[in-house]
Simulated scan of single mutants.
Amino acid sequence: MILGKCPYCKGNVQAIKSTANGKKVNLYSCENAKKEYDDSEQFVFTSDSTCTFRVYSNVFLRWNKRSFSKYEMKTLLEEEQVIVRLHGRRGTREYFKYVITDKEYGVSILWDEEVEEKLISS
């Protein structure tokens, strides 16, 4: 399933079902970011890869967000930012933050930017 255009090379970003650490997740990957296992069993980019944009749907698990949805990724690719709902360590506190694309990590949370209340409810 194609979700949009890569923010770096304008290739198609696809949703691919994958397994990470024994869990089934979606991998949102640019069609030009190809990886394979090398001789030392490391998962590395191939020699013909021209992009590195890859994001796993469980990227925000440490903030108690189980999945970064296809809809959220599509919105991120279209609008260059998306608002996500995160939770405190015990799951009792809820807060909203902007997420943007990041060349090194795929996506980053803007911790210093506050999301306006009216944007959350819409």
Rank of each mutant, 00 (worst) to 15 (best):
F53Y: 13
F53I: 07
F53P: 04
F53G: 02
R54M: 13
R54D: 10
R54Q: 14
R54P: 06
Y56M: 08
Y56W: 09
Y56T: 07
Y56L: 11
Y56V: 03
Y56F: 12
S57M: 02
N58L: 01
N58T: 09
V59Y: 03
F60D: 05
F60R: 04
F60P: 00
F60L: 13
R62D: 14
R62C: 10
W63S: 05
N64I: 04
N64D: 09
K65H: 09
R66P: 02
S67E: 14
S67A: 11
F68L: 09
S69L: 07
S69Y: 00
K70W: 06
K70S: 15
K70N: 11
K70G: 11
Y71K: 15
Y71C: 09
Y71S: 14
E72L: 08
E72H: 07
M73T: 05
K74R: 14
K74I: 05
T75I: 10
L76K: 01
L76W: 02
L77K: 04
E78K: 14
E79P: 00
E79R: 13
E80T: 12
E80R: 15
Q81M: 12
Q81F: 12
Q81K: 15
Q81R: 15
Q81D: 12
Q81I: 03
Q81H: 14
V82A: 00
I83D: 06
V84C: 05
V84G: 02
V84T: 04
R85V: 06
H87N: 09
H87V: 03
H87R: 11
G88F: 06
R89P: 03
R90N: 14
R90C: 09
G91N: 06
G91P: 05
T92L: 13
E94R: 13
E94D: 12
Y95S: 08
Y95L: 10
Y95I: 05
F96G: 01
F96E: 08
K97W: 06
Y98F: 12
Y98G: 05
V99R: 05
I100V: 14
I100G: 02
I100F: 11
T101L: 03
T101P: 02
T101W: 02
T101R: 07
D102I: 07
D102E: 12
D102N: 15
K103Y: 13
E104V: 11
E104N: 15
Y105S: 13
Y105P: 00
Y105H: 14
Y105N: 15
Y105V: 00
G106D: 07
G106L: 04
